[in-house]
Design a protein around this nucleic acid. Structure first.
Lengths: 343, 343
DNA sequence: CCCGAAAATGTAAACGTTTACATAAATTTA
DNA sequence: TAAATTTATGTAAACGTTTACATTTTCGGG
């Protein structure tokens, strides 16, 4: 039960000053080889580990990065964390993770995180971007990178998914099958991803000279259940759509269940496509045609950029936006015979 | 662009000493109401946030907790984080999360985390428990709680899943359907969960006076793919099993795909059961009969216990084990008509 | 063998808090 | 009203590092 040993203890035992010890431990400044060896030996013997709190205070740098996500559920958010973690490990940074605990004032969480000096920078994914958040970021002296900011502002630093083109691509793919009556199950009204996906859908239709019809446009909230009901509603009308684009996979999966209940065959009676490429969409039969989001890659880049801001390799005040493009994953739910994904 | 303000600045502006300011900010020690009000006012005006690094150094307490998981993938690990996060929020603790980056020396990761004073305690889920890890925990002065330690040692603090009884329950359920030839798709050989689940399977069989047969025992590694091949192997023999217990859901899902390829109907030709109750198992058709693990609850309890150790409310040196019991989730993959889960 | 430069080491002041202890002011007690 | 309390405040030393600056030692060249 050795007491916690400090740099002082090492200095005492090696008959040198703490400055010398610090120099050795940080490989900074000249030290006689002999002294160096001895200090290292003693430090190792005592199993010395520098106190990182003291280190942080002195260096004014914590080597940790805050990650604030709207919630901590799903493979999706896990993938974000995974990507960030991998990259953080590369840069020797630690990760402080927190959900914004939507029930509470998430802004406060953010502020707390950023202002207390607990982290050197923050990766923030807010449920929705608003002026208050913008203000906080501007005011704080803490570098912030936004994940999927969902705003048209240009004076921020953000990494986004190309929802618009993803949606356009997949709807175009459905059109390529010759379907003309293509319905949509929307996401939450105020969700920017959902809005962009809708726009992609809309523009794909009109670009292909199909007409948008309100009868084929039903709302959902990204949940499985909402997909179930939305599908039921869409297919209960006399003039049914021939294909449906669900704005995310969970809703598409809900649609599968509704289809089974209604004895509707996918893709024979109605084709189906989703968005996100969640694990389950590769499990269901027929495999769901969907859009893959390179979310791990996106997170990695975001972290990498943040670290460079922190290290001063990149100007933190300069706005920067990056958008990663999505990939079409072809299953047979759209009517294709051959799937691009294999197991 | 106000410079970062410290307690000194507040003291200066309020014409008091920093001690008084500190007292006000921490609600500690007597301060005249008038002085107090003024200090609070000024602190608020300047939007003062105490530097948590300095605070940690002085108090010898970081208010953060380390979480080390073998990997950061899956809903499963996300659920762990979710449970921990919820509870951490209740106790006002921050979470430092890291995967043990299995490619590297995970032990070193752990040591680093625990010895550097970056966290007040650690929740550790190791890929496999071994003596080295045990040594580290004993030596370190940092409270450690193990998640699913998978050891029979009694001198540790750990929170576990009752794999054994879970497996026994579900295999018994299969037997209740009258199936006599019950196969198993095992998990990784060195994985303790997998071993315990196998034992549950074995004991359930023999308790019901069925005989264990090597022909029905094939190995897997918890991956979907391994489930696919294991199923194929099991069902390629002339004397096929009538039911199969896959040691986790992903392997069971792989079995679904193999079954589809081989034109084998579930549950008509072969009944199937899994373990874990992952999201996808509720999606597939027929719904997978499986075992639910209250992992969020388990994580919550682990964190709560750890915090109490840190706060000195619980003796950190006393061993403690807790096991949470699992729940049977009935789908129709086992042959049941009525499912307990609904969507 | 002395001088100057380079190398090695030490001293002490940060970093921004908390807190034991000392002191001063206000209040009560007798 | 002086002494004894109680309340309010200040001083200064921690906490364990890093690092600018000062000082000492070493070493090569004249």
């Amino acid at each position: 039960m050795t007491n916690k040993i400090s740099i002082h203890e090492i200095a005492r035992r090696s008959n040198v000053s703490i400055a010398t010890v610090s120099r050795v431990l940080n490989n900074k400044g000249p030290v006689k080889q002999e002294t160096r060896d001895q200090i290292i030996r003693i430090a190792r013997e005592l199993n010395y580990k520098p106190n990182s709190t003291a280190r942080s205070l002195s260096r004014r740098k914590t080597d940790s990065i805050g990650v604030i996500l709207p919630e901590l559920v799903d493979e999706f958010f896990m993938n974000i964390i995974q990507g960030i973690d991998e990259e953080a490990h590369r840069y020797n940074r630690y990760l402080m993770i927190s959900s914004s605990h939507s029930q509470r004032n998430d802004i406060e969480t953010i502020l707390e995180f950023m202002s207390s000096g607990r982290v050197d920078g923050v990766i923030l994914m807010a449920p929705s971007f608003n002026d208050e958040i913008y203000e906080i970021i501007q005011k704080s002296h803490c570098p912030v990178v936004l994940l999927n900011p969902g705003t048209t502002r240009k004076d921020i630093i953000g990494f986004s998914i190309d929802n618009y083109n993803g949606a356009k691509t997949i709807v175009s793919h459905l059109m390529g099958h010759g379907y003309e009556k293509i319905g949509i199950i929307r996401g939450p009204v105020h969700n920017i991803d959902a809005q962009q996906r809708f726009k992609g859908y809309y523009d794909a239709l009109t670009a292909g000279s199909l007409k948008y019809s309100e009868a084929y446009d039903v709302s959902g909230d990204f949940s499985l259940k909402s997909g179930y009901y939305a599908f039921t509603r869409l297919m209960s009308q006399s003039d049914r759509p021939r294909a449906i684009f669900a704005c995310n996979d969970y809703m598409a999966l809900g649609a599968y269940q509704a289809a089974r209940n209604m004895n509707i065959r996918i893709p024979d009676d109605v084709a189906l496509a989703g968005f996100d490429d969640v694990f389950s969409s590769g499990i269901v039969n027929p495999r769901l045609t969907t859009i893959h989001i390179p979310i791990i890659e996106l997170s990695r880049r975001a972290l990498s950029y943040l670290v460079k801001m922190i290290d001063g390799d990149i100007d933190s005040t300069a706005p920067y936006q990056e958008t990663v493009s999505t990939g079409l994953v072809i299953g047979s739910s759209c009517g294709c015979k051959q799937s691009t994904a294999q197991y």
